[in-house]
Design a protein around this nucleic acid. Sequence first.
DNA 1: TATTTACCCGAGTATTTTAGTCGGTTATAC
DNA 2: GTATAACCGACTAAAATACTCGGGTAAATA
Lengths: 160, 160
Amino acid sequence: MKLTTKGRYAVTAMLDLAIHAESKPITLSEISERQGISLSYLEQLFAKLRKNELVKSVRGPGGGYQLFNSPADIVVAKVIDAVNESTDVTACGGKGNCHDGKQCITHDLWCELSEQIHQFLSGITLQNVIDKQKAKEEAQREDNLRPSEPNNTFILSQVS
Amino acid sequence: MKLTTKGRYAVTAMLDLAIHAESKPITLSEISERQGISLSYLEQLFAKLRKNELVKSVRGPGGGYQLFNSPADIVVAKVIDAVNESTDVTACGGKGNCHDGKQCITHDLWCELSEQIHQFLSGITLQNVIDKQKAKEEAQREDNLRPSEPNNTFILSQVS
DNA sequence: TATTTACCCGAGTATTTTAGTCGGTTATAC
DNA sequence: GTATAACCGACTAAAATACTCGGGTAAATA
Ligand code: FES
Ligand code: FES
């Protein structure tokens, strides 16, 4: 599926937008500085995010970007899809023709993995990520003696 | 995590080895021809697979490669790890320092996705893939009128 | 209406990664 | 000793990524 900085930047920027959401739009310069992402690169990403109706823009002075929907209605998968154009890990792109026209022995395997990844990322909204972050900070404030212990609770994970 | 042809080739080659397993070792030339993978490239991959004790080699005439363990004891995750060196999707490599020393807002998200992927690929053995393939071929032989309909059953998937 | 702000857009480029080649060495069966 | 096939390191072509650059265009303010 190809998860690279492009996708990571996009999610980070969207989260920044969600966190600093006000009535006023947020400029890319702000995001650029806060998150340490090149402004020109952000512009490229936001062009795609806008085309996919994940953000809306306001031009001119006082302008900037705002989330198209509420953070609770935007899933991470959409954001990555928007800039990366596929969360698919097959060689054939789902067509089943990578072994000279015929479907290769590994095809089904990659198909299912793709599905798995997509399902995971489709189940997490921007709001989920923010809530988790807040909970974590609060926990750290209460007992900031211990070094942070990992707590994976986006999903009730089936770790044994 | 970066799933590319390198990892796909490795899995394909291992499956080829599993399917054509005999008392005799299999040469890379055979695999190269059957699977359409460059011989020299295969050599590179198998060097890593051998170092990770996934295959064992026999040199000289009549030599070649054999699986180190039974196909039922080799999980796909190991194969990919061996050649790709990480199924990790974080920017920081798990260190939590990608936002100038501090952990970024998306860190936990990528950590959990990595975990998810790794768990999926750790639950599937080469034998699983082969069995699935066989079942599929058999089903197609019985009613080869209909075009193949997808059946994802590696895992009892929770698709709604 | 001039100016400033900040989005908009396409093209171009440096860097990195991937995929693959090449030339040669070593072990072993016959 | 000769053919076979694994072993090894270095090198390279091609593709993808992560940017930059230069100029737009819409809108608010003065
Ligand atoms: S990955 Fe789809 S046919 Fe090989
Ligand atoms: S991904 Fe780990 S700190 Fe950003």
